[in-house]
Nucleic acid binder design. Structure first.
Lengths: 349, 349
DNA sequence: TTCGCCATCTGGATCGATTCAGTTAGCTCG
DNA sequence: CGAGCTAACTGAATCGATCCAGATGGCGAA
């Protein structure tokens, strides 16, 4: 006889001899009916195994699903297994949960012309770190709220940290002690994959990823100020902010003959810097004596290792909270730039 | 004047002079109408800006939402920023996406008596690594499919790896070279938090987390076989599989006087072992000469560092794929145990 | 010619709630 | 006493699709 059809609000109304509107009110608007009746309804509901109004029906009727979709750049593996992204997500989840919403996870590669499954029914979209040039946002319902994190979308609010000044500051600090041969290790520049050294032709101007461009621009400013020709400073690219992708690139760099090997690495993330640290130690290079390193993000691991990482601390949890509040309409949707702190560690004293 | 009301299937039908059923078929059942008409409908739909059938309405009518919820133990911060969990998630996402489903993320702490927001409308639930004793699953709709990963739920399919034999094998290998003072570092044992050394009273029998119990039991078997009294082997607990939570515990352990300090650490995860490795190096302890280490999971980072980690490799991506296939009904829902590989590295040769 | 069949298309009931515009009863107040 | 008001509750339309049970027409076979 299969399943005995889930009990509906109407069944419960019939059972209790009241109208469906009253049942609905008992669940959603306590002030619309007498406490006594409400008690009786909720009690009977529990007794009869009615599990509350059906979410699918409610979302059709009200037009709201209580789902917020988070669109992550790249694959989920990459985006999720990353201290920064996971802090962002937990900040988002914290606020959503406190307001009865849930989080749908989408990766950029799912942004085909038609959104998969239920993605189109989200009440809003938080989009994290896409490349502006890839126009992946077209399939999103144009009317729904959208907040961009770490990049910009024309006409939409976005949340950033002060990447440029922060990178200027950390690079300035690093260059206050003379560097014979500084180098920049940067995160993905463009949609086109590229691991390894980058020629001057494919640099700042072509940088598509917003944070990469801002951070780079901060580094350049400090380098120029310190008397280096930014265009002449070696730059190496890593496609993904993971140990396994960074490692080969950094190994190639560290295996350069001593007179070509950089003595200062301005890294665009702590993950890169920590990978460099691990690989340097393995080669018997001393940090900071033989190699100085700066990071970005301020992830916990960087502060536990010896030497402690010199880095820029950003509060990704707060970034997530703010994005969520904005998408829920708890604060005015308007672009924000959060501040960061310079953490002087031992990797670049 | 607000928004000019989203165009509906009915509007499109009127516009084209066909029935709504035909429009619906054009989108969902191409074989139910002539190719020519279908062409015309899809063309006109695009021209008029009709973005396809509304997901909310569809899910009410069909009873399916195309959403699969993944319930993660603990907070999202902890669960997500973990190589194993993120591999699991990406395996799940890969399969879901290929079949037009999307992934809703829930944390165990959201499992209150009423599921938040749209969580109750999921078509199925994949639950990861909860403690069986905390009965968090009660709020889930009892009829919907459920797959448990890394633990068991009465009467439901689950997916495991062969924790016990794998841990037996790696401990047996580790103990084949005489250990003066082995110790076990294990993941959370019970719902009640506990970081640090654990007395014999709160051990195997009280272990609530399924994988902890299985792994521990494998270690015990090998220890007993090697002539150690398992109950006498020091055991230290870490609450979370993160650098920042493991570090203080391991620091306390490594700072013991030399004659009390373990010379072999059987760790329940690579994260623990890698943290131990980092902290040991910082103290000038040589691995494996002064301290031997084994891990579990086979995460990438462990194979890049020197010394390479001796560990048990499990395929978490495949675990995720299998869970997703099961929940979508692509394979028979039945408990599975995946096999693992022993990877002999240099941390415990 | 007539019958049956298939391909194609249609009408309308239905999914399970929410919500708005009432209705009723009880109470207050001049 | 009766008008007016409010609190408490109701009936029915509605959200936007899906999908069953037909209706229609054209074509081939007997």
């Amino acid at each position: 006889m299969s399943t005995p059809r889930r009990m509906t609000l109407k069944d419960l109304a019939r059972e209790l001899g009241v109208s469906t509107a009253t049942i609905s009110n008992a669940f959603n608007r306590p002030d619309q009916l007498s406490p006594a009746l409400r008690e009786r309804i909720l009690g009977e509901a529990k007794r009869l195994g009615y599990r509350g109004p059906d979410a699918k029906a409610r979302s059709l009727r009200t037009g709201r699903s209580r789902i917020i979709a988070v669109v992550l750049a790249e694959s989920l593996t990459y985006s999720i297994n990353d201290a920064v992204a996971s802090e962002l997500l937990s900040g988002i989840a914290e606020v959503l949960d406190a307001h009865g919403h849930t989080l749908l996870l989408l990766s950029a590669r799912q942004m085909r012309s038609e959104l998969p499954g239920a993605a189109s029914m989200a009440d809003g979209y938080i989009v994290y770190g896409l490349m502006p040039s890839q126009d992946l946002l077209e399939p999103l319902p144009p009317q729904s709220p959208l907040v961009a994190v770490d990049f910009d979308v024309e006409g939409r609010p976005s949340i950033h940290v002060d990447d440029e000044p922060a990178c200027y500051a950390i690079a300035r600090h690093a260059l206050s002690r003379r560097a014979r041969r500084p180098a920049i290790i940067n995160l993905r520049l463009t949609a086109e994959p590229c691991n390894g050294p980058i020629g001057a032709d494919r640099r700042l101007l072509s940088a598509d990823q917003t944070i990469t461009r801002s951070r780079l621009s901060g580094f350049y400013r400090a380098l120029a100020e310190a008397g280096h020709d930014p265009a002449g400073v070696p730059m190496w690219n890593v496609e993904e902010n993971t140990f396994e992708v960074c490692a080969p690139v950094l190994e190639a760099l560290l295996d350069l003959p001593e007179d070509e090997r950089p003595d200062l690495l301005l890294c665009m993330s702590d993950r890169i810097a920590l990978t460099a640290l691990t690989l340097a130690e393995r080669r018997g290079l001393r940090v900071p004596e033989d190699l100085r390193l700066t990071g970005f993000d301020g992830i916990a691991e960087g502060q536990y290792r010896a030497p402690r990482l010199t880095t820029v601390r950003q509060d990704s949890v707060e970034k997530g909270r703010m994005a969520a509040r904005m998408i829920l309409g708890l604060i005015e949707p308007r672009s924000h730039t959060l501040t960061t702190d310079l953490w002087l560690g031992d990797s670049c004293p």
